[in-house]
């Protein structure tokens, strides 16, 4: 086996050392930093894009939230306007009703007092008519002439008795 020939050992060891040290220096100084840089840049870029996407998404969510909030606000505003209008209408109605009731009461009072006056008038008239009637009937039946005021007094007495 040529592998066991000891004269081949020293040159192979020497050149292996040269080759490996050369390779190590090339890799550690030149090659690997470059590859590492490219990989690092890519990672940064992907990370950056991802972060940008996350940020844009957050912005979109913000816009959506603002939009929803404005809708809700508008709805609430409309609602309160509606409520206010309803309240105003109700208040106006109530005021008008109260006014009407007051006017009605006034008119009723006037009418009642008028009725009262005409009633007392009528009652007083009935007394005189009844007295006159009683005097006329007495004179007709008995032929006695009765004084009008006496007849009036008698009628008054009867009315008092019956009342």
């Amino acid at each position: 086996m040529p592998q066991l020939d000891p004269t081949s050992f020293s040159p192979q060891l020497f050149w292996l050392a040269i080759a490996f040290i050369l390779l190590y220096l090339l890799m550690s100084r030149l090659v690997l930093p470059r590859v590492g840089k490219v990989l690092g840049q890519r990672e940064e870029r992907i990370q950056g894009n991802l972060e940008k996407a996350v940020k844009l998404k957050a912005e979109a969510e913000e816009v959506l939230a603002a939009y929803q909030k404005s809708i809700a606000d508008a709805r609430a505003e409309a609602h309160s306007a509606l409520n206010q209008a309803a309240a105003e209408i109700a208040a106006a109605t109530a005021a008008r009703e109260a006014d009407f009731a007051r006017k009605l009461a006034e008119q009723t009072a006037v009418a009642e007092s008028r009725i009262k006056v005409s009633k007392t008038q009528a009652l007083a008239d009935i007394r005189t008519v009844a007295g006159d009637l009683a005097a006329a009937m007495t004179s007709k039946l008995t032929g006695v002439t009765v004084n009008g005021s006496d007849a009036g007094g008698a009628v008054e007495a009867v009315l008092k008795e019956r009342a």
């Binding site: 004269t7 081949s8 020293s10 040159p11 192979q12 020497f14 050149w15 292996l16 040269i18 080759a19 050369l22 390779l23 090339l26």
Partner: peptide, 15 residues
Amino acid sequence: DISFNNSALWMLIAV
């Protein structure tokens, strides 16, 4: 002995 040989050649080729 550190003579250059085919083994050394292929090591350097690999590098």
